[in-house]
């Protein structure tokens, strides 16, 4: 087992453990911190898959900006484990059973698929580098890129309108 496999298993276990702890933590601030751990693990997966640009963007945008926004809102509202609303036990069990059933169905369906020869290749290829991504982005995807800038503008205006005290 090479270093790549070891890293793959380590990052996968870290991601799943972090995701479970996001859901079961009583204190919302701990949930945010575990979600940052999950995002860092997923960024590690991107680096293993030679998607360096996406790894860095994931760290900056998700683990940096978005999670700071979540933490900021939690601290603005002064939330902690005591103010955390609790569902009753049967609803919790029903939710876990529903999620587990979805997992079971998807795994059972995908186990039949013949994917033995398909390999997500590691340690080779340069499609994740910013040079190639940028060329494709500004040649083939210029229109979606511009539309996303309009989306950002409208989101910004919407946030200001919603957040304004009347």
């Amino acid at each position: 087992m090479g270093i790549t496999q070891v890293l793959f298993w380590f990052l996968s276990i870290l991601a799943i453990l972090g995701a479970i702890l996001v859901v079961i933590s009583k204190n919302p601030v701990h949930s945010v911190l575990w979600l940052i751990v999950v995002f860092v693990a997923i960024s590690g997966h991107y680096i293993l898959l030679d998607a360096q640009f996406l790894a860095i963007v994931n760290l900056i945008v998700y683990a940096g900006a978005i999670m700071v926004l979540f933490l900021f809102v939690f601290m603005l509202m002064n939330l902690n484990a005591e103010t955390e609303p609790q569902k009753n036990r049967w609803l919790k069990i029903a939710g876990v059973v529903a999620g587990g059933s979805l997992l079971l169905v998807l795994v059972a369906a995908l186990k039949q698929a013949d994917l033995k020869t398909k390999i997500a290749e590691m340690n080779r290829g340069d499609i994740g580098l910013i040079h190639n991504l940028g060329l494709t982005l500004f040649q083939d995807y210029v229109v979606p890129f511009e539309i996303s800038s309009v989306l950002f503008l409208s989101a910004m205006v919407g946030v200001v309108v919603i957040g304004k005290k009347e």
Partner: peptide
């Protein structure tokens, strides 16, 4: 790495997310 491993990892993360949406009451 075979693609199966990535599919199962993503399915597991997705289902944990679904279970979280169904079990928690805190909107954030």
């Amino acid at each position: 790495m075979p693609i199966n491993y990535y599919i199962f990892l993503s399915v597991a993360l997705f289902c944990i997310g679904v279970a979280g949406v169904l079990t928690r009451r805190n909107a954030i």
